[in-house]
Design a protein around this nucleic acid. Structure first.
Length: 305
DNA sequence: ACGCCTACCTGCTTGC
DNA sequence: TGCAAGCAGGTAGGCG
């Protein structure tokens, strides 16, 4: 899916372009896009007439806060996109849900692979949009009612760009885990919003091997990782996200960040730091790119000056 | 806790 | 050219 920078880009676009707009009606073209247990026809009926007050993001989910307090959540997963179109724009065969706005524009949910999900939750009581495994998120997902907004995302780890995500906090979390760094960075209950691209990029920037057990990092390495995570995510936002095939902003245009990536999908190409070919391995069934010289498996025994 | 597997989907690229 | 295998930004659920 679009990861944090891509979802942030979409949410900011929507805040600018559809905050204040009213949804005249919605048409669901692929039922399973609407989260169970909300039936698609009821979704259509319930969203009709709703006004969008504000749009933002939590983890990799777009939140459309409606004027009546309800919240529509859009999890883009792998190929989902939210695109605002002007009247007269040709139909899109991959548009799974189309929201007709009263001003004549459309907000289209496009999703080639149909993995994404849209939910509509009552004000002040959201159901889980799920994250990670673990009893907590499962319990939340089953019981539908009366969750405060703050509890909805309780299964998610900290937002890496928030003020309270400090190196100290990262250290505390890493110290309790023995999993490999790559696996942990992809675990949404460990840290929210990081996906395969930015995990690889952050590890390269921090000069850390993806297979390093989390609890073996030195303080200096933790500080590097903390910094690297924030840098690669911020750079992604600045460039409106990384596009390979499907990702586009709400303007329908791809982001420019793919060209700035150091390792992701650069297998066998020279490392920008040392010139050695980038390696590709599989970790947790996800392809993983790194520089075998800059990111040594062992801590090297000593910190580089 | 952790790692690994399968599912969910479609389209594009690669190799024979 | 054709066709099958492999690959893709994510996550949920199950097993050992």
């Amino acid at each position: 899916m679009p990861e944090l920078p891509e979802v942030e880009t979409v949410a900011r676009d929507l805040q600018r372009w559809v905050a204040g707009a009213t949804i005249a009606n919605a048409t669901v073209h692929w039922d399973r896009t609407i989260r169970h247990p909300q039936p698609p026809d009821r979704f259509e009926a319930e969203i009709a007439g709703a006004s969008i007050r504000r749009v933002d993001r939590r983890a990799k989910t777009v939140l459309l806060h409606l004027a009546d307090g309800r919240v529509m959540t859009v999890a883009l997963r792998m190929t989902g996109a939210l695109i605002v179109t002007e009247p007269g724009t040709p139909e899109d065969p991959y548009a799974r849900v189309v929201f007709a706005l009263r001003d004549g524009r459309e907000l289209r949910y496009r999703d080639v692979r149909k993995f994404g999900r849209i939910g509509l939750w009552p004000g002040g009581g959201l159901r889980s949009v799920g994250a990670g495994r673990g009893a907590r998120s499962r319990k939340v997902a089953e019981d539908g009612r009366r969750y405060r907004i703050g509890e909805v995302f309780s299964g998610h780890g900290p937002e890496p760009l928030s003020r309270n995500f400090t190196a100290r906090r990262l250290k505390e979390r890493l110290a309790r885990r023995s999993a490999r760094l790559k696996t942990l960075l992809l675990d949404q209950s460990f840290i929210a919003g990081v996906g395969n691209i930015y995990a690889d990029e952050a590890l390269w920037r921090a000069r850390l091997h993806p297979l390093r057990p989390a609890d073996t990092l030195t303080d200096a390495e933790i500080r590097r990782l903390h910094r690297a995570l924030r840098q690669v995510l911020r750079q992604g936002i600045t460039n409106r996200g990384s596009s390979f095939s499907d990702y586009v902003g709400a303007d329908g245009e791809p982001g420019a960040n793919a060209e700035r990536l150091a390792v992701y999908r650069r297998t066998d190409q020279p490392c920008y730091r040392c010139g050695r070919p980038i390696s590709r391995i599989v970790v947790g069934q996800r392809s993983t790119h790194f520089c075998p010289r800059c990111q040594p498996e062992e801590p090297v025994g000593s910190e580089r000056p």
